[in-house]
Design a binder for these strands. Sequence first.
DNA 1: CGACTTTTTCCTGTTACGGTAAATAACGGG
DNA 2: CCCGTTATTTACCGTAACAGGAAAAAGTCG
Lengths: 195, 195
Amino acid sequence: MALGDAILACLTERPMTGYELAKTFDSSIGFFWKADHQQIYRELSKLRDRGYIQGREVVQTGKPNKLVYTLTPEGRTALRHWAARPSTPASTKDDLLVRLHALDSIDIEPLRTDLMARLEHHRDRHANYERILKKRFPDGTAEGRLDLGNLLLLRLGARHEQMVADFCEEALDALSSMSGKAAVVPIEDGKREKG
Amino acid sequence: MALGDAILACLTERPMTGYELAKTFDSSIGFFWKADHQQIYRELSKLRDRGYIQGREVVQTGKPNKLVYTLTPEGRTALRHWAARPSTPASTKDDLLVRLHALDSIDIEPLRTDLMARLEHHRDRHANYERILKKRFPDGTAEGRLDLGNLLLLRLGARHEQMVADFCEEALDALSSMSGKAAVVPIEDGKREKG
DNA sequence: CGACTTTTTCCTGTTACGGTAAATAACGGG
DNA sequence: CCCGTTATTTACCGTAACAGGAAAAAGTCG
């Protein structure tokens, strides 16, 4: 359980519904942890079964009733236990890197377009991080512990995106130096998978 | 299928047995993609079923016979098709980041030890990358396309590890500034999970 | 009315991860 | 001669994660 712990971590801030959590996993914590609403609802059920969170139904008018989940003391303890265990360094698992590993067996043109898309993507994210940093931490310091964590996270995210963007640029540069060689036969046969 | 493609990518270099692949996934490609021998053997069966690779039994004396897998033309095509699709940027999913996100609800001492362990880990990896870079690319340039890919990968890896190591240091610094505050109650209750 | 938002739930898959273990066959140490 | 190690493959167990399609229920907005 790691997604479960990520959810518990979110709920330390404030009680939330599955819907709100799904949105959270689309922005703040979602910068480094992706999960769609399905996964979140399923995980919420498990957490509730284990007694780590408690659902309280809030009757709404004009909208469907919602289930606000709150951390139970057991949930807090479980999170602290989990956080006290050594973390396991995750491996990157980026498709793009696998492609580079087999660079001489693949077509360069699609790779180039992919690299350009990725460059843009990582630049966007970098700009986004910087924007949030300027808004939330104009003077670059945090007072509370919670703020400190998020400041560190934002800085790491910003640097990471910057670095990957630079990498894409560099790769594009290097590829254009050898663009002529080995054009190979483009994909022409019929049985392509998934478009 | 992404592990499958990683395996295909490895087999473009040379035919290999599952055992060799497992070792490869422990070093070179394993720097950004982890997989144990179980996963690899299972994936090899699937790839063989799909006709992407072909196994050739090599009778050995003194050792069990081995199955050398070679890419079939279909496998090469499949790999190229896969590589021609846009890559999906992977999310980080590092436990450590989740912990920082809930920094004010967890105990700092174990976090600090964890950060120190991670600092060492990433420094080691950085040193390793640099070592390989110096050995394989003493002048910092690549001639072939395959070499170019691996040079880029190594550089990215080195920078990444450097960056994360710096991050750990920074986090440790920031934590020591607020070490006194909020020591909270250490974990004392009986029901710890996994040690 | 239809489209959209909010909110939750269920379904069916595949892919991945994790551990434990065994069979086979030689080599080397004590 | 037993034991451990290396090399090599395979099996079974379970859970966690990911992907995608769908639907229900209640209201608002155009």
